[in-house]
């Protein structure tokens, strides 16, 4: 896995709550057997009309909106366990998702793919949305080492939680399956004693 670096970018706001994984990537696009190319169908039914033409009113289709940070309303990633949702967001170019609340399985899937999950209080999320509404070019800086998200212009910042194990994996680019493989003897011993 890539080592994690500081993210400094404009952000794309998606001011909606309960964005489920069926919206992030609908089931009919889950038929691939590799991990690549899911970004093309990210938010498919919000992004494209029946004929596959981009819907101009959807924010990802606004060419003036760019950035590697997605900011969304609470309970992001609820529903299905499909890791394709994390793959699609990453493949599209996002490196961090900011919200005030995330679904559990999605959080694990995102972190397992180097997509940073930044959970902030409702109040700070609102400030982020406000700042971007006033100036779409607002720069946001996310520092994993300090666990800090900063609204660069205003200097407002907020701490975000992340489990220490995953933080270490992300910062150092560790792969936890390699780690598990190193525990084989311990696992076999556990099995032999398990009743």
């Amino acid at each position: 896995m890539e080592k994690y670096q500081i993210i400094e970018s404009t952000a794309i706001p998606l001011e909606m709550e309960n964005i489920d994984t069926d919206q992030i990537i609908p089931a009919r696009f889950l038929k691939a057997t590799d991990r690549s190319g899911f970004g093309d169908n990210l938010f498919r039914d919000w992004r494209f009309d029946l004929n596959g033409n981009p819907k101009p009113e959807f924010i990802l289709n606004d060419p003036s909106r760019t950035g590697t940070i997605l900011i969304a309303g609470k309970n992001f990633g609820s529903g299905s366990s499909r890791e394709h949702a994390a793959w699609a967001l990453y493949d599209y170019g996002f490196r961090a998702i900011v919200s005030s609340f995330f679904a559990d399985i999605f959080t694990n899937n995102a972190l397992n793919n180097g997509l940073l999950i930044v959970q902030v209080p409702d109040e700070f999320l609102k400030r982020l949305f406000d700042a971007i509404r006033q100036n779409p070019k607002t720069i946001i800086r996310i520092n994993l080492e300090n666990q800090e998200i900063v609204l660069s212009e205003r200097g407002e910042k907020e701490h975000f939680p992340i489990n220490s194990y995953k933080k270490k994996c992300l910062l150092k680019g560790f792969d936890d399956i390699d780690y598990m493989l190193s525990l084989k003897q311990k696992i076999e011993k556990f099995e032999s004693q398990f009743k």
Binding site: R82, H84, I105, N108, N109, N112, I177, M180, K184
Partner: peptide, 11 residues
């Protein structure tokens, strides 16, 4: 998720 499926298959 699928990364975890891989982990279970592996370990």
């Amino acid at each position: 998720g699928t990364s975890e499926v891989e982990m279970v298959l592996a370990s």
